[in-house]
Design a protein around this nucleic acid. Sequence first.
RNA 1: GCCGAUGUAGCUCAGCUGGUAGAGCAACUGAUUCGUAAUCAGUAGGUCCGCGGUUCAAAUCCGCGCAUCGGCUCCA
Length: 639
Amino acid sequence: MKNITIQLPDGSSVTRNSGMTAREILTSLNGSSLDAVVAARLNDRTVDLDCPVEEDASLAPVSLDSDEGLDILRHSISHVMAQAVQDLFPSVKVTIGPSIEDGFYYDFDYSEDAFTPEDLEKIEARMAEIIAADLPFTRSVLSVDEAITFFEERGEPYKVELLRDLAGETQEVTLYRQGDFVDLCRGPHIPSTGMIRSFKLLNVAGSYWRGDEHKARLQRIYGTGFASQEELDRYLALIEEAKKRDHRKLGRELDLFQINDEVGPGLIIFHPRGAMLRTIIEDWERKEHLKRGYGIVMGPQILKGELWKRSGHFDHYRENMYYTEVDDQVYGIKPMNCLSHMLIYKSRIRSYRDLPLRYFELGTVHRHEKTGVLHGLLRARQFTQDDAHILCTPEQLNDEIRSVVDFVDDAMKIFNFEYDVELSTRPDDSIGTDEEWDRATTALRTALDETGKDYDVNEGDGAFYGPKIDFKLRDALGRKWQCATIQCDFTLPERFDLSYVGPDGEKHRPVMLHRVILGAIERFMGVLIEHYAGALPLWLSPVQALILTVTDRHSPYGEEILQRLIEAGVRAEGDFRNEKLGFKIREGQLQKIPYMLVIGDREVESKTLAPRRRDGSKLDALTVDDFIALVREEAVAFR
RNA sequence: GCCGAUGUAGCUCAGCUGGUAGAGCAACUGAUUCGUAAUCAGUAGGUCCGCGGUUCAAAUCCGCGCAUCGGCUCCA
């Protein structure tokens, strides 16, 4: 028998017989227990513990509580769920069931009926039995043709379809079996079902086969599992906590906005405090854009249909737009702000010396979003973008993209956000030539590479007129929302015949960037509210200070300092009701107001106020002027 | 748009197998004048999402809408 050398994670190596399984090798090491080991890492692959090791290799255990281990565990639980579902509902056809961030799902074709919440309980109970039976996961290798025959006999058309697609790429596939359930699967899996110590099915949702709305409608069951019951409980508690940060709930509780059936879905009414927050953000935007060489512009809300035809929106964006008719002319209500900006550019002859031109508009747009996608402030039918269009020479493009990336980065730091970056390339339904798309995509990619940021690529996810860089923020439940985006566009300048006179005296075509920094102000506010759980930093708080009187006799003094604070630019309000102090503090606290200013006999006497911070800490009594200075300093410090 | 769930007072929710609604908080009135997260008492408040249907009788059963929630598809 041949000897092989096994490299261990600690850097040492051991010699073993070729053909020993990963499990045998790992257990042979001193003091190694495999109780919490789900799989092994063999060189750069994760494999089953039963996998034989034939050659020299590095080998490491993959433990249940590592990211990789959890992934394998959850994938295995999804198989157990599929087994339970087929036991209970024999007519169900299985499709796919991957692990995902925080859990797993499995998509089923159960066309004759729908899974109910009660069904989930039954499925969980059956899963518990399968886990108790401690069924081993066994792997087998088949040719694609054998596998097709196997799944045809089992009446699993989706698996057959997957296999037919795989046929071009590979000769052999692997199947995993536990009990009498067999699934087409790359693996690896945990050794046996008994290793599952915690799981929970979370919800049922609709989905489509292969994510295509024209293909079969499937039912997806989401679930999760952790290395231990305690971790699962902690996760479930976290989800409950996150729900309390939901901006729709906080929006009502903090009296920021409403979305009213009588008005219509996806349309937001901002209350004074919400409108205040929005105003603060918008004022910040104007200032920042002016600092960076943008000119503020404003366009009309409706533009003639002819113009939307020329831009390509009529052909590629028609179903997302609203229309109206004025004097027998069709007008499109703008879903984007670019058209006016194009016309501003065209209003006179431009020289290369004028470029880049940067037009900024807090532009309110309307888009006919499908009903099922509306989501509070995060997905509305009317929203206001911090939109700009930059027109520049091809040579300037790279610098312009980079300065926008920097702008986004600065903004995210100021608002205290982490973000993910994605590059999206040409979609099927698009305008422009391959050459233009290549140039645009390369420009974006190059600029991104130069900044050294990590990013993912979404093939085919670009806008119809150009590729884009998206910056995504996360909401309370970890769902990603696109906020900033930079879109490169060679097409609109073409369609609108934009030009500039170059140093050579000839006409040249400028390049255009569409870009937003916060994205839609509404969406950004929604994410912001969830990010801070409603407790906005001082500079963003609609109400920065609330004056609380101890008894009625302190009201005149309260009115006086309220007036002084407001005149000094502090966003202050007073609560002079005849209520106990503790009661008023509770209300102010629930409103998440940064400072409460208590005034009683002592403060009236000494002409001071006693601040209490939102975190419950108390400050020494301050004069009104000192408090104003404190607010000014702190409000700036957050920028 | 698709799949599923849900829709009862301003908010959070109860209302069993059909017999036309209830709690807590909020609001209002009165008392209390109080020092850092809920003072006490009383009063009022509802086209039970809408429209049809079944029934002697519908918040409850059925149908069709509308909206919301969770996903899918799409997207700032």
